[in-house]
């Protein structure tokens, strides 16, 4: 959405068909064919079978449009079992959109942390495993796109919690180690804003001592209000500690200058277009800051 606002033709693609992207934009289920979300903004959902059809049509020129029907389900099995086939069809489709310049920027909602390395790394795996054949011939141009830091970058997104930070750290190391694809940005989402200055925090920590005054002024529910503040502050502090850990881990990476930007926690709604807009706003602010 931010890219589209900035005047670039943008394609967003969801890889795992869970429908989260559609609900984020509040549109009907996304298809392999682009759905127009906004001016200059299209969205698709990846589908191995459709990707195979398109691939066959474009590259193999097998006249199988009618006959491929019953084969599709079988192909699904093969794609499940044969390493990298499913991934390369998906990645291939995206690289194709980049190569053909149908869009200025292609944004991919990739697989979850545990799977993304095999997804992004599929062309390399195929190149190494498959000695001959069309698939192998097809991998080189994909690698040219994927491994060029000017054209492809991985945005690693996390939340300031223990597991996500550990996984993100591992992912960054693996990306650098096992694929030739470059991480370009780390986004820490759902970061709670700082509530108190140091002096205020000192006062807040001792409010129990004046419980009687507060109850007198605001009623018996005031202790619950204080509990709320204590929990909010503790959540923020825990998050801040994990965020600090993330910063240290990123600083230790061999790659220099990997910026980290934060997006604040939006408590009012979990998803939907308003949230997308709000996140786009804060990303815009943060990214201008990061460039400076």
């Amino acid at each position: 959405m931010l890219a589209a606002r900035q005047g670039r033709r943008t394609l967003v693609c969801e890889m795992d068909a869970k429908g989260a992207l559609a609900s984020a934009f509040d549109v009907r289920a996304l298809q392999f064919e682009p759905t127009e979300i906004d001016e200059r903004l299209d969205a698709i959902a990846m589908n191995t079978e459709d990707a195979l059809r398109e691939y066959l049509r474009l590259f193999v020129r097998v006249p199988l449009i009618g006959r491929i029907g019953p084969l599709a389900s079988t192909f699904d099995f093969v794609a499940d079992a044969a390493p990298g086939v499913k991934e390369i069809l998906g990645v291939g489709k995206l690289c194709y959109e980049v190569r053909e310049r149908h869009y200025d920027v292609v944004i991919v909602d990739a697989d979850a942390t545990g799977h993304v390395v095999s997804q992004i790394g599929a062309p390399r795996v195929i190149r190494d495993l498959v000695q001959v054949g069309l698939v192998r011939d097809q991998t080189q141009w994909m690698l040219d796109i994927l491994e060029d830091p000017q054209r492809t970058g991985v945005v690693v997104t996390t939340t300031p919690e223990e597991m996500p930070v550990v996984e993100t750290t591992e992912l960054l190391r693996e990306l650098t180690g096992r694929t030739g694809v470059h991480p370009c940005l780390v986004v820490a989402n759902r970061v709670l804003p700082v509530l108190f200055t140091k002096r205020q925090a000192a006062v807040a920590a001792r409010l129990d001592e004046v419980d009687d005054l507060l109850v007198e002024a605001a009623g018996p529910g005031v202790s619950t209000v204080l509990t709320g503040a204590r929990i909010t502050e503790a959540r923020r502090r825990t998050g801040a500690r994990h965020l600090a850990k993330l910063r240290r881990a990123v600083a230790e990476l061999p790659q220099d200058e990997l910026p980290i930007v934060t997006v604040p926690e939006l408590l009012t709604r979990a998803s939907g277009p308003r949230v997308v807009h709000a996140v786009a706003d804060s990303l815009a602010d943060e990214l201008t800051g990061a460039e400076r």
Partner: peptide
Amino acid sequence: YQVADRVLGSRF
């Protein structure tokens, strides 16, 4: 097999 062969290569 025709499809699989062309796509994956028979060696694979």
